[in-house]
Write a protein that binds this DNA or RNA. Structure first.
Lengths: 227, 227
DNA sequence: CGATTATTCAATAGAATACTTGAGCATTTG
DNA sequence: CAAATGCTCAAGTATTCTATTGAATAATCG
């Protein structure tokens, strides 16, 4: 292989890898991937949750599909999109770590939007696991039911944030409550902790979300769970 | 935090993480990062090695610098660029794994440009480490000297590919030779193995390159090494 | 100091991307 | 079968990205 061929090979190879880079070079696509990390979804659901028009969401999904980072399964009228592999999540997580580490703007945003009270003492996955084993904790999944059913921390109960105030009586007063949601920047758990704390429950949030828990191969379940 | 604020927060946060994505959304930038993973370099060196004009390379470096994935240290007339952190390498590696897994084009390129003979039985880092401990192998770094000096596999000798034919007599005839270079898609080691094999040496290549070896915390050295 | 060198900057043209609108297609429902 | 639904596609426009050119800057050398 001579110089010109080497150049051509390298250029084409790096261009291919850059295609994967391009797929995560847009905020809306990152949000779509984060949503898909919770549970497969239809285009309409994704569009609504990410604040996009359906056509626009569909286009972003096509971009992701063209480099096979998402998969699609058609079922009747609906197209269910999902992540193509666990590696896609890894990519998003590395991106997040780099952002936290190297972009001052990220810290600024967190400081600006999340009040310090909301960020009080979250616990880690390891700590939660320890407390679950000691049966010293009541684990609460505050994501939408669909996401809970697609997979949740083993033993966790589901009370979507929207229903929380109406279902307080299901929650034990004595035990410590650990609420979790989609990930470290999702505010569902923060808001749940705020509601519970103000009602006198002992509640904290899990720092991470379900995808992180799962990717560490900690115990998970799927399905409707306990009532 | 109400709905509109949530939306704003999410949009801005994901946009920040997407900035990191944008930094790896271009083949030339990926090549630059791969080069920087070997050793810090000046703009001119990078431009030459990546086949770019100096101004263009400089612009790409500015893009990388704006999101702090590369660092720069000025020394007299020269600006030495380097990777900002180990995480940047992780990002590149995840991108590569996803590309290999999900883009058929990558396999097609490898098949088209690398002859099967060049890809014969590379050995893994673990295997190499085992053989080094048994002193059953002579490890050869065929990267440019500058990269060798910035860091190499502990005990490896440096013979840059360009000098290999002239320095064959330094290489032992009896021992097995393991040549390594920048990474799995770098052809330096392939070509070295081809040269050595045709001269009757027993030579194979390491599947990975030095950055992968280092990131696994296997033994490394830096400096001029043994003569 | 003026010339040289390495790098960056500014301006530009052309390519690619993002979002909207409205139409089109396939499947299901009444 | 017609209407409704969920999704995709095509076209148009605004924006962003890329590479080139030539000038500007800044450190070094004679």
């Amino acid at each position: 292989m001579n110089g010109a061929h080497k150049r051509e090979f390298k250029d084409q190879l790096f261009e291919q890898f850059a295609r994967i880079g391009k797929s995560v070079a847009n905020g809306h696509r990152l949000e779509i991937l984060e949503l898909l990390a919770q549970a497969p979804r239809t285009v309409e659901d994704l569009a609504r949750e990410a604040g996009l028009s359906v056509a626009n969401a569909s286009q972003h999904l096509q971009v992701l599909r063209r480099c096979n980072v998402v998969s699609v399964k058609r079922n009747g009228l609906y197209a269910y999109y999902g992540l193509a592999s666990e590696d896609v999540l890894t990519l998003c997580r590395v991106l997040r770590r780099l952002g936290e580490k190297h972009l001052a703007e990220v810290q600024r945003l967190v400081d600006a939007y999340l009040t310090s009270r909301q960020r009080l003492e979250p616990i880690s996955c390891e700590e939660l696991l320890r407390r679950i084993r000691e049966k010293a904790v009541w684990v609460l999944d505050v994501r939408p039911r669909q996401e809970y059913e697609a997979g949740h921390i083993a033993g966790a109960r589901s009370i979507p944030l929207a229903e929380l105030k109406a279902r307080l009586k299901e929650i034990p007063r004595r035990k410590q409550i650990v609420a979790y949601c989609r990930g470290p920047y999702c505010v569902f758990a923060d808001e749940a902790v705020a509601v519970l704390s103000s009602r006198g429950y002992r509640a904290v949030r899990l720092r991470e979300g379900f995808p992180e828990w799962k990717s560490r191969h900690l115990p998970v379940e799927a399905g409707p769970g306990v009532p």
